[in-house]
């Protein structure tokens, strides 16, 4: 894996962390919880190198 690709996994991981943190802080909106989880699914599968 080259350096640039590693950067992309880092960017993806950072987004997952930010989304996860926002999800943990979310207290009110079930809508935002669902959306946050939905957005995380493909990012996590990319990090796991599934798709």
């Amino acid at each position: 894996m080259n350096v640039i690709m590693i950067f992309y996994y880092l960017i993806t991981a950072a987004l997952v962390c930010l989304l996860g943190w926002n999800l943990i802080r979310e207290k009110k909106s079930a809508n935002d919880m669902i959306l946050g989880l939905l957005v995380m699914i493909p990012l996590v599968l990319r990090l796991l190198r599934v798709k």
């Binding site: 989304l19 802080r25 959306l35 699914i41």
Partner: peptide
């Protein structure tokens, strides 16, 4: 700032997903 950006973008990102 990053957390707020992601929060603001959430509906847009979710739109791309759905």
């Amino acid at each position: 700032l990053a957390l707020n950006t992601m929060k603001r973008l959430l509906p847009l990102l979710a739109t791309m997903i759905v």
